[in-house]
């Protein structure tokens, strides 16, 4: 019985994933979605990767981190510098492109490991500010390095990221995080969020799992960064400052800590709302801010819960925490 449920859920998700891809692709081919909206779709997918991966560290592991954009930038710069030097612009080789992306993601993982080992013993707000500090240090380093062309930004990155790539990588990210949290490893990670001491005393190697979740989260942030760099073709350190980290955290919290569908929907909404408001350009951040405050207050009052609980995808058991008290 267990086997059946596991299989059907995975298969269902897989089917949904393919269906959405086909629909979007048809819409793009028939020009219902023009190239502008194709770009928006790509950014949506990148943001979903970022939100889903941060959810692993913040939502499931329960560690409030504000450095996700830092890992994203490590992935972006590493992959971009590699692809420029490997002459990807002329070769356009998908293999090299994917290898560059992986190199970026692995670099982000290594930096995550380097940062995670010392600072993951900090708690709550202290961890939050320490990760923010690392985010800013990474940014300052990129501003001052020669190979990154400093604050002027790295230009001439080959345009490689298309909808197919981001969609596949997004699907892989969602799948891996889903598979991870729905395994013994995921239970260990969630138990740390629930009660770190009880988790240790149930035999969970807490430090290992804290670092694991943090590092996997950094890996996918690095991947998202690589995709972003090869979509924008120009990247600047200022893009990856703590405001970007905040933006990703907002998606995770708004979508519900430890909820994958929530993260996906919140990432979509928070990417689309500013796009839809583009004609009110000067008011759009204002509206965004008001929507954000209103959404948080509504969510706090339980109104959102009541509405969302009517939706079918919420029927799956869902674990939520209120963060660190």
């Amino acid at each position: 019985m267990v086997k059946k449920i596991l299989k059907s859920k995975t298969l269902g998700g897989f089917g949904l994933c393919i269906a959405v891809f086909i629909i979007l692709n048809v819409l793009m081919m028939t020009k219902v979605l023009n190239s502008y909206w194709r770009g928006v779709a790509i950014v949506c997918c990148i943001n979903i990767i970022l939100a889903v991966s941060l959810n692993l560290a913040t939502g499931y592991l329960g560690q409030l981190t504000l450095g996700h954009a830092g890992f994203m930038s490590v992935g972006a710069y590493t992959s971009a510098i590699l692809s420029i030097h490997l002459g990807l612009k002329t070769s356009q080789s998908p293999v090299i492109f994917i290898l560059c992306l992986l190199a970026g993601a692995i670099m982000a993982t290594l930096i995550g490991l380097l940062i995670g080992i010392p600072i993951l013993r900090l708690r709550g707000d202290y961890l939050c500010i320490a990760t923010l500090a690392f985010n800013e240090i990474i940014r300052v380093v990129f501003v001052n390095l020669e190979i990154t062309n400093g604050s002027k930004g790295l230009i001439g990155i080959p345009y490689m990221t298309n909808f197919l790539y981001v969609y596949i990588f997004m699907a892989i990210t969602i799948y891996v995080v889903y598979a991870l949290v729905n395994s013994r490893h995921g239970r260990a990670i969630i138990s740390i969020r629930e009660d770190e001491i009880a988790s240790e005393l149930a035999g969970i190697p807490v430090t290992y799992y804290k670092i694991l979740a943090f590092v996997v989260s950094a890996f996918f942030a690095g991947l998202a960064g690589g995709l972003y760099a090869h979509y924008m073709t120009i990247i600047m350190p200022s893009t990856f400052d703590y405001n970007k980290s905040v933006e990703i955290l907002v998606m995770v919290v708004l979508g519900g800590m430890g909820s994958l569908p929530g993260s996906i929907i919140a990432a979509l909404l928070l990417t689309l709302i500013p796009e839809l408001l583009i004609q009110f350009s000067q008011y759009r951040m204002l509206i965004y801010a008001i929507v954000l405050i209103a959404a948080m207050i509504l969510k706090g009052s339980g109104a959102g819960e009541r509405i969302l609980s009517k939706l079918p995808f919420r029927k799956t058991k869902r674990i939520e925490v209120s963060g660190n008290e």
Binding site: A188, I197, A198, A202, G203, V321
Partner: peptide
């Protein structure tokens, strides 16, 4: 009592089983 409050009853026990099923 220090249970994993927002996890299911079954999952609470499974956390205890963690190290004896090391896949």
């Amino acid at each position: 009592i220090r249970l994993f409050k927002n996890m299911t009853v079954l999952d609470n026990v499974k956390v205890g089983l963690h190290h004896s099923h090391p896949y």
